[in-house]
Amino acid sequence: MRSLTRLAAFLLLCASVSVFGQQDEPDSEARQRVAEDIDKLEEPMYSPFIERYMLDELKQLRIDLSNQRADLIQQVVDRELNSVDRGVTYATNTVTYFFYLIAAVSSLLVLLGWNSLRDIKEKMSNLADEEVSKLVNAYEVRLRGIEKQITQKSLHIDANREEIERTQEIHSLWLRANQEQASANKIAIYDQILAIKPEDCEALTYKADVVLELGEPQWAVNLCQQALAIDSDNAHAFYQLACAHTSLGHYEEGIHFLAEALNRAESYRESLMQDPALFPLHDLPGFQELVGPREEE
Rank of each mutant, 00 (worst) to 15 (best):
I102F: 06
L4P: 00
L72D: 13
Q226R: 14
E202W: 05
A242T: 05
K134I: 10
M273V: 15
E131S: 09
V19H: 07
E252V: 01
L117A: 15
E296T: 11
P276G: 03
M273C: 05
C201Y: 06
A177N: 10
F10M: 08
L65E: 14
L81H: 08
L272V: 05
S83K: 02
A229T: 04
S267P: 00
D158G: 01
E295V: 13
L175R: 15
E36W: 07
Y97V: 00
L55S: 10
E296H: 07
R2T: 00
A277P: 00
V105T: 09
I63T: 12
T94W: 01
L204M: 13
D191N: 14
N82L: 11
E162M: 06
P285Q: 12
Y206H: 13
D231Y: 08
V77S: 06
S66M: 03
D283S: 10
L58K: 08
I63W: 11
S133T: 13
Q226D: 10
S267F: 02
V136F: 08
C201L: 01
G249L: 07
E43D: 09
F257L: 01
A229F: 01
V110R: 10
L61F: 04
A235W: 02
L241R: 03
V136T: 07
S83V: 00
G21F: 09
K197S: 11
Q74G: 03
C201S: 12
A182V: 03
E163Y: 08
Q168E: 12
R144G: 00
L281R: 05
A103M: 11
P217L: 02
G21V: 04
T167Y: 06
K40M: 03
E163G: 03
E180G: 00
W114G: 03
P293A: 01
L143Q: 06
K153Q: 08
E180N: 01
K134T: 07
